[in-house]
Design a protein around this nucleic acid. Structure first.
Lengths: 369, 369
DNA sequence: GAGGTTTGAGAAATCGTTTACCCAGCACCC
DNA sequence: GGGTGCTGGGTAAACGATTTCTCAAACCTC
């Protein structure tokens, strides 16, 4: 057996470098209560004493133990953030915003990525509950019902995107897919496209359905017949985009434009078209969704529908903080709106063969609400 | 003043739905010590009693309060992870791996992104210390000295990439840039390239210097004269890649190939070349570094030097766990090696004008160590 | 069956804070 | 001058676990 290091005894630690509120109290010659009050900026403490305490704190470079604080105050000052796929660039951009805003308000965040796996999701939720998070933002664009129960029953404040149960303590970020998607479809229609496909996300996700529905509605508005076969199921990944494009190219009546449920899918599409020797937008126009950062540098740069990560992040943190602040009975605001809008770049153009000579003049997207 | 809701008293909470170890103890008709022992699988508990306790725990769906646990045991079971830029796809892939492995061992992780800002880094470190992390992985490929002191002085176990102070409790992940970069340069040389540029990361980062140095060394090995002006400073972003390419194209003696310090830079380069009407690899060969997921679908797919995020993540967690397990005096392993190797895709080819007719046959990269 | 050794469970101290409660001064006013 | 308020700081009880003692009961052994 290895030489057993004598376990540091309390006494020994005390004399050496134990750093707690007591140390500060002794050094500043006040009670621990006063130190605590000073740190928490309770206004009744005498400014002179406060100054003395702060000096000691600075000198000894002390900071309070968050665990102990959380234990007694019942407030962990942690928010959970659950995303579906951290490797999809949309989410890191969201996480960044969420972190910045949360930290600004003194919160720490616990991020988890579920990879669309319900099992992981369960585990995730459990871990967050154990850490006593004060709220969870579930940014997965869809969640299974039973899991939701698990969370809701603990009555932790929650924020969802798109859809969630009607219950106190739960907020929804309503994304206005309609607006952006309509702009996109109108943009394509104005260019002369009539055969437009849509590559959706996984059908079981509510958000995927919403986007597909918005697409169909927009088509109809433009007087284009809706054909269910033009909607292909993808999975929000590049690989899904590639697979969907293969199906698209195999169809007997190829579309002249394709709209994707997210940018990663569109990137897959772009790649597959390049592989197939087809040119974008000459042979096929492509529209993405999200406007992730790299959409600016794809080849060609991607026309896409923007949904602001920062807006989502801010709304999510705001919603959670509101729930924490107000008691659980009064719910201040249940829904928050998130806008979407078309960003025209270079992956969209006139359909093949149409008005070739006019190709240089790109019409502005028809914006109508 | 709004109607003041009477604050829930201890007694009231007790009767309603307070859920702690005491509740379980009462329900199982044992003492709280026994419940604690059962949960922590102390072998001296009578199996019969343990079973009874577990049943109650399951029935009431109880789980221990992590804060309280951490407070008394002194172990938070949290690791910190600091990355430089969460929006660079390299890092989410790293985070994913880190999270998976950490969770596997019962750890939670606190992620923070510094965006290369020392101020943010300071704040980050502070937050992690407050949360009493048991170790921090600093995956920023470079850190300012003073900040480092702040961390090291608290003697929290640390893991760095590439370089870090020689001290107990600190491990280094040594990336073998040399190997991959040499493969890349040899690959280019074999294709017939003689004028090869390098777009580095920010000069102040140690890793950027290492990569640039490895590049120069490899050039020399291939008998190509090293010209300092061919090394252009980038900043590890797409925008930096674009800017660097502009400089490259403006040079009087244009290179026929360019190697980049990371894939995001390479993506910027690809974009700028597309904009300039140049073709890859016909007009210019491009090599990236990292092999992030989207490198497979760039146009053309990117030849790059792979560095496994998963290997890094695993090594980092392993190192931290080792430090936690062993007392701080015995340091089990200080260095961990990370391999790199060339992945040939389609962004590299013969230099412009050379052996046009042979273009279809792509030589295998010369691998030599 | 007495004495000694295990075995297993309970009591209580502790982790580092917050906060309710209490009390010593001091100013004020009749 | 002695009640009466205030003010501001100290004392001690939580918060919800872990862990060290301690000790009763059970089990041997001779």
């Amino acid at each position: 057996m290895a030489e057993k290091k004598p376990k540091t005894t309390r006494a020994a630690r005390k004399t050496s470098e134990r750093m707690d509120i007591r140390t500060i109290a002794t050094a500043a010659n006040v009670s621990i209560a006063t130190v605590s009050r000073t740190i928490n900026r309770v206004p009744t403490v005498n400014p002179k004493i406060a100054k003395r305490v702060w000096e000691v704190i600075d000198r000894l470079d002390y900071f309070p133990n968050t665990q102990a604080r959380a234990l007694v105050s019942g407030r962990s000052r942690i928010f959970g953030l659950i995303v579906s796929e951290i490797t999809n660039p949309f989410f890191p951009e969201l996480i960044q915003g969420f972190e910045d805003i949360a930290v600004e308000h003194g919160y720490e965040i616990l991020v988890s990525s579920t990879n669309y796996d319900p099992q992981r999701m369960t585990h995730c939720i459990r871990r967050m509950l154990e850490r006593k998070v004060e709220g969870v933002a579930i940014m997965t664009f869809g969640i299974e019902e039973p899991l939701l129960e698990q969370l809701a029953s603990r009555n932790v404040p929650l924020v969802f995107i798109d859809v969630g149960p009607e219950r106190p303590g739960i907020s929804i970020l309503k994304v206005d897919y309609q607006h952006g998607i309509r702009q996109g479809v109108q943009h394509l229609a104005a260019l002369g496209h009539r055969r437009i496909s849509f590559i959706s996300g996984p059908k079981r996700l509510h958000s995927a359905q919403s986007r597909a529905a918005a697409f169909s509605a927009a088509l109809q508005e433009c007087g284009i017949a809706v054909d269910a076969s033009t909607i292909i199921e993808g999975d929000h990944t590049m690989e899904g985009g590639i697979a969907a494009t293969e199906k698209l190219l195999a169809a007997k009546n190829r579309p002249t434009a394709v709209m994707c449920s997210n940018d990663m899918t569109a990137i897959g599409v772009l790649h597959k078209l390049y592989r197939a020797g087809l040119r974008v937008p000459d042979d096929l126009s492509v529209i993405g969704f999200d406007d992730i950062h790299i959409a600016q540098v794809t080849i060609p740069p991607l026309t896409t529908i923007q949904m602001s990560r920062f807006d989502i992040a801010r709304a999510a943190v705001t919603a959670l903080r509101n729930h924490v602040a107000h008691s659980s009975d009064s719910h201040p605001q249940r829904e928050y709106n998130i806008e979407t809008s078309l960003i025209v770049r270079e992956s969209t153009g006139f359909p093949h063969g149409a008005m070739t000579d006019l190709r240089k003049t790109r019409p502005k997207p028809a914006i109508k609400r």
